[in-house]
């Protein structure tokens, strides 16, 4: 077994060579070439020319598109906060999805006809591995199923010709950290089992507060509040240093400070991403772009597995291998 330098609680061993075409992965480890955190509002696809900030974000997606041509992953593994689920985690498994998307909020920006090719075998393997870890999961394979705006925007911008197959997993509204971390580990299991190389994506904004009026009514794009912007910057700084697990550990604070969403239990994309990537800080972080899009924090970030690590921290949050349900923290009724 390959021995690598790891930080406390590290599960992912870094590949030996950072050239993606020559990466050698230790046996038993998932072959994850790179991960990305990207926004998913339709402005950056449908009308990037309308604001300079949107143009820049659109161009950053172009960089990812070029990188993928070099990386040549077998699949794009996608977690989208734009796809909420409430009865179990859901994984898209329809081999070819065809529809025309119209965003429920931004319908005036236009329609998006799309085709997405799904790696159905991988999606089923992911479901099986998640169930083995105690999660409630189901695959979806229905004509007309509404693929979320974030996933469609990502596909159109980085994989428009379906050069790569995808697997998309929902963001379970009621899942908290334990479930989400285990969902990430199940993705690793499935990648190991299927021996597929992957580029991993999270589609989400940072701060998610919109400006309260229409884009045509304001001249300059801006963040919805200074507080949101400060929290975004905190995450940008940490991720530029590759400190993914540190960001993951700050998710609860970020949710309470910079997110609007009472119904969603917590800000969970970094829980999932860090778990998939091995719960470490061993990355080379690249901030490809960071701009406001209708007031939200739209960051395009790349994280490449690296032998170097930032920090050697004792984390506050525990590690979880198998989901065993919510713990009942109330005293049992003795009667």
């Amino acid at each position: 077994m390959e021995k690598t330098r790891v930080v406390e609680k590290t599960k992912q061993a870094a590949p030996k060579n950072l050239d993606p075409n020559k990466q050698v992965f230790p046996e038993g480890q998932p072959q994850i070439l790179k991960s990305y955190f990207v926004p998913g509002l339709p402005h950056i696809l449908l009308c990037p020319e309308k604001k300079p900030e949107w143009t820049k974000v659109n161009q950053a997606f172009g960089k990812i598109r070029e990188e993928l041509k070099e990386l040549k992953p077998d699949i794009l593994l996608i977690y989208s906060t734009y796809w909420p689920s409430v009865v179990s985690h859901q994984i898209q498994a329809r081999p070819l999805i065809k529809w025309t998307l119209v965003d429920e909020e931004w319908h005036d920006l236009g329609s998006v006809p799309y085709e997405i090719k799904i790696d159905s075998d991988f999606s089923h393997a992911y479901k099986d591995s998640a169930e083995k870890r105690g999660l409630e999961v189901r695959t979806v394979d229905y004509d007309g199923f509404p693929v979320d705006t974030g996933s469609v925007v990502l596909q159109k911008l980085v994989n428009p010709d379906n050069q790569f197959l995808s697997s998309i997993v929902s963001s379970h509204v009621y899942a908290d950290r334990a479930e989400t971390v285990v969902l990430g580990k199940a993705a690793r299991d499935a990648l190991v089992q299927t021996q597929k190389t992957a580029a991993v994506f999270v589609v989400s904004s940072f701060s998610n507060r919109y400006l309260p009026n229409w884009p045509e009514e304001y001249k300059e794009e801006k963040f919805s509040s200074l507080k949101d912007e400060e929290w975004n910057q905190k995450f940008i700084e940490l991720l530029s240093e590759g400190r993914l697990e540190d960001v993951s550990q700050l998710s609860r604070s970020f949710h309470s400070q910079a997110r609007v969403s009472k119904k969603v239990v917590n800000f969970k994309p970094f829980w999932w991403l860090s778990s998939v990537m091995g719960s470490t800080n061993q990355f080379k972080g690249e901030i490809l772009e960071y701009q406001p899009v209708h007031g939200t924090g739209a960051a395009v970030i790349g994280l490449t597995p690296s032998a170097q690590t930032q920090g050697d921290l004792e984390f506050d949050e525990e590690d979880i291998e198998v989901y065993q349900g919510n713990r009942n923290i109330l005293a049992e009724d003795p009667s």
Binding site: P84, S85, D143
Partner: peptide, 13 residues
């Protein structure tokens, strides 16, 4: 069009 419930696609198409 066709409406497919994103939560219960098994029940509503």
């Amino acid at each position: 069009s066709k409406s497919v419930d994103p939560i219960f696609p098994n029940l509503f198409r």
